[in-house]
Design a protein around this nucleic acid. Structure first.
Length: 136
RNA sequence: CGAGUCGAUCAGGCGAUCGCUCCCGGUCGUGUUUCACGGCCGCGGGGAGGAAAGUCCGGGCUCCAUAGGGCAGGGUGCCAGGUAACACCUGGGGGGCGCGAGCCUACGGAAAGUGCAACAGAAAGUAUACCGCCCGGCCACCCAGUGGUCGGGUAAGGGUGAAAUGGUGCGGUAAGAGCGCACCGCGCGGCUGGCAACAGGCGCGGCGAUGGUAAACCCCACCCGGAGCAAGACCAAAUAGGAAUCCAGACGCUGUGGCCCGCAGUGGAUUCGGGUAGGUCGCUACAGGCAGGCGGCGACGCCUGUCGCAGAUGAAUGAUCGUCCUCGACAGAACCCGGCUUAUCGAUCGACUCACUCU
RNA sequence: UGGGGUGUCGCCAAGCGGCAAGGCACCGGGUUUUGAUCCCGGCAUUCGCAGGUUCGAAUCCUGCCACCCCAG
């Protein structure tokens, strides 16, 4: 459906084609994560998709980030970082889970941390690690 | 100029680039034309709050009967008004705080009943008499008097306690006592003002009666049916059709508040097997905002004009850069309103009070 | 988002107007050659926080705070 959208549209868009939309999309990633990147404040899970671009899903639990303002801030920044990621390589479905204490970071710290985690994730997918695929 | 009281408003601004969502317009594609869905485009419009929060009250809305009767349970609690309603607001009264502007106030009933008050204390509620005080009889002595003992009168004083049976003063008395008087308090009666709460003043009662506690049970007056948009409705598909066991056989069972009645419907429960968990509506236009006029002390009401002001559904307001200043607090809509409560860097405006100085 | 519940010592908790039980743990002492067991004694508990009612509040009332559970 979005075949000509990808060729005609610019690189840094973030419409519904770039997001995980329902529970089945999420459970597909959770049930069979091909790669993961863990950090003190965040956990990324990823799986290859057959779509013409990366797709992002967010899990920011109320238990981990208490205030609604802080949850919104974390999600906005994560989307912003993801939006600026180049659309190339094997396309992934990624779920970002926030952990406790992530709301203590300021905007600059948060976005540089997320860029770093994305870089690690992309590396692991391009050179498949036998240990990670064995985990599931 | 300093200190303070009350009320109202605002909640970083501007520019550039990239990005999200809804609406509008255009265009392309798909399906069967109207039309629907999806993609893209537009120097096109809209896009969090005063608390959006806590969920503490009150309503609308939806389903259960159109929410009906009784019990139970809960709430409110000086008076009058406002309101859709309220535990809110306005005005007034009583009480308390402040020099004042003002602020605070769960503020009905204890002579309907039941209960409670540890410890201390004589006594904690149909009062009582420990130490005292006073009088009389008898006994002793150093015979005015003092001490002991018995009988009586007292509740002024002491001591205990959170609280001790009106308070203060004068008279009175053997000592005392509302025993008498004055003022205050309390109760009763009627009068004046006020819609009322209540206030004022008058007369009567000697007050052995009527202590406290109702955020103890309770009484009185008034109010409250239950659940919640994950309510609920619709579309495609499905709930079909089956099998087994158990219970009941219509004073039974089910239907959303705990029970009874009433009302409506009708066999019910469990297991096996089978199937679905996609979308649309509800979803923002109303107790609506602003301006003006009129009525009212005011809350508010009425009339006229004008404005269109989030509506997502894995869930939208952001990021980066520049610039200015006072350097930006608390904090993010999820059905919607009216309040209350709590969090909060500050800024501005208005009204008023007190102190000092000057004129 | 809605509904419901719980906060008492380090842990588990009873108490529901008048001194806050008890057990485990911990500390000190005794018993024992030593340890365990056993015995005795101790625990600085703002009773989640702040107001109020009462003579008196862990207990009653009001407002906050934290944590937990249930419903897609």
């Amino acid at each position: 459906m979005g075949g000509d959208a990808q060729t005609g549209g610019p690189d840094h868009r973030f419409g519904k084609a770039r997001r995980l939309l329902n529970a089945s999309d999420y459970s597909r990633v959770f049930d069979c994560a091909e790669a993961r990147a863990s950090h003190k404040h965040v956990l990324l899970l990823a799986r290859r998709n057959d779509k013409p671009g990366h797709r992002l899903g967010l899990v920011v639990a109320k238990k981990n980030v208490r205030q609604a303002v802080q949850r919104n801030r974390v999600k906005r920044l994560t989307r912003e970082v993801f939006r600026q990621v180049p659309q190339q390589g094997p396309f992934l479905d990624v779920v970002v889970l926030a952990r406790r204490g992530i709301d203590q970071l300021d905007n600059a710290q948060l976005s540089s941390m997320l860029r770093e985690q994305w870089r690690k994730l992309a590396q692991r997918v391009s050179t498949p690690n036998p240990s990670t695929s064995q985990e599931r």
